[in-house]
Design a binder for these strands. Structure first.
Lengths: 240, 240
DNA sequence: CGCGGAGTTTGCGCGGCGACAACGTTCGCC
DNA sequence: GGCGAACGTTGTCGCCGCGCAAACTCCGCG
């Protein structure tokens, strides 16, 4: 799949923002594309990090597994986002598995090619720094949350983050636009699926969310925000 | 303090590794130096991020404070390390306070100057990416720890990390080479100073560590590693 | 030398939430 | 249409570790 790639396809990628036409053509020349079926992995934790990836279509989750098998969801990747880029520069293998949550199409650049591109076009390096820096700050925030806040607020924060990242407006609320299990939420917030289930059930009883199998809809984002930020809950209920 | 800086002073900084002489001179020309007394701050959380810093001498801790005043120690900075660089590229202010734990000397480059340097010398951008990437991976590991492991192992991991970063070999053990309070350890591991105190006391009773006011010495690093990684404890005691 | 404050230790009680278990439900597949 | 697996719900129990409180030690300073 090393046929020529349309540079226009790179338009949506923040990594290449601000590049002129010739530079984009240069970038496109080094790209390969790859399809990954739902459920399989783009790369596995520990694999040598020999390429930089960008997701064109689908959804991927990055999962890190500890020495005793404990897992956390590091982040979800949506279309237009890059992933698996950092370990190219830190040495060592990929720090987690990249699991396709839907059928995916991704581009990739072999490590030497991407390094050369960055040396030729310094702007790419600056863009990458902005992206990686943003993730660092996000993870720092999660670290603070999991270190200092209790489970309910952490889950509220996680849902709000998902809404921001992959929320789809529907009538009467916002829906998280990909299949999400309780286990996933548990691994995002450092708790167990049991506790997640209980808390979501509670919120469903209060009409804050509506949820089913692998699916969550937020009916009252403001109430969720109130829980996340510990604001005074407006005592609002639908009936009079 | 904008007098000429000796380019040789930049030798120890990983950020500028692999640059040739003229490039180093270019970098040195943009640098300013600054002294900060113990206890005061290099910058404060929320300040506009207008410069990139590198620590020449002393020790700094980066502390992030949540909306309700809960604090975590994001990381410690030793001589030769850069800090406060990421938010230059992500927009927004500094994500935490930089507190001097000793009298410090730091260099700084105003944001526009550093951006220009990176565009002129792409190598700097790649180095920065490696550094930031390494921190991202470290924080991800801490996130997994705090999400899935219990307090005792987290504290063991934190101490081992400190040893790696600032350990000084002394007779009969390794000493952490800067003043470190129980509160600091608590804020690194997401617990309270009470629990830290209890656990350190326990370890001291077993001869694994020795500790006093603002000071910790590891007597048996292997035992600490065994706790951190849940290895079978070798039942070894000094007396016969 | 005495005082005050910062850092540390230790005891006690309880509550959040993890561990375990059992059951219900939905979906995919033969 | 029936079976099995994956996902979700709910109950009970127990304990880790947090909150609160009090006392102790060490250091710097007047």
């Amino acid at each position: 799949m090393t046929h020529a790639l349309d540079p226009a396809a790179l338009r949506g990628l923040r990594l290449f923002a601000g590049l002129d036409e010739p530079a984009l053509a240069d970038v496109a020349a080094g790209a390969q594309s790859r399809r990954v079926a739902r459920g399989s992995r783009v790369f596995a934790q520990g694999d040598p990090a020999d390429a930089c990836h960008a997701l064109i279509d689908g959804r991927i989750k990055i999962v890190q597994t500890g020495p005793d098998g404990q897992q956390i969801v590091v982040r979800f990747i949506g279309p237009g986002e890059m992933f698996g880029t950092v370990p190219m520069f830190t040495g060592g293998g990929y720090p987690g598995d990249a699991v396709a949550m839907a059928d995916c199409v991704a581009l990739l650049w072999p490590a030497p090619a991407m390094t050369a591109l960055m040396l030729r076009h310094p702007r790419i390096g600056l863009n990458a720094l902005g992206i990686v820096g943003g993730r660092l700050q996000e993870i720092q925030n999660r670290l603070r949350e999991v270190s200092t806040e209790r489970v309910e607020r952490r889950i509220a924060h996680a849902l709000l983050r998902l809404v921001r990242q992959a929320g789809r407006r529907i009538e009467g609320g916002v829906e998280i636009a990909f299949p999400l299990s309780r286990q996933d939420v548990a691994e995002m917030t450092g708790t167990t699926l049991h506790t997640v289930s209980r808390i979501l059930s509670g919120w469903e009883g209060q009409g804050i969310i509506e949820s089913g199998r692998l699916q969550v809809t937020i009916r009252k984002p403001s109430a969720l925000l109130a829980i996340a930020e510990d604001l005074p809950q407006a005592e609002e209920n639908g009936e009079t």
